[in-house]
Amino acid sequence: MSIYAYIAAMAVTTYLIRALPLTIFRKPIGSAFLRSFLHYVPYCCLTAMTFPAILSSTASLVSGAAALVVAVFLACRGKSLIVVALSSSAAVLVTEWIQYLGNL
């Protein structure tokens, strides 16, 4: 089968999933339950995506955990998005480097 048919199928499906709710549900939702549900959705969704996936996203459990601890600590201190993100990256590099030296 043509690879372009696959690409079109992927792109159209993904786009419709994103576009339909944005265009169909424009009026403010009346139901208090649904409004509360949507209030919690971003936090639940982002948290479920982050944990425990972050622990297995790097070369070792330890460096993934270091990224998590550094990010949570800096976010608690109110640091900006980019500072938190770059610092967690740096934590991974430093941890893996230390582990590498330890294994020599």
């Binding site: 982002l46 996936a53 998590l68 976010a75």
Partner: peptide
């Protein structure tokens, strides 16, 4: 890992 860092910065 930056992407996870950003999620954490949004939720915490």
């Amino acid at each position: 890992v930056m992407l996870y860092g950003m999620f954490i910065a949004v939720v915490v």
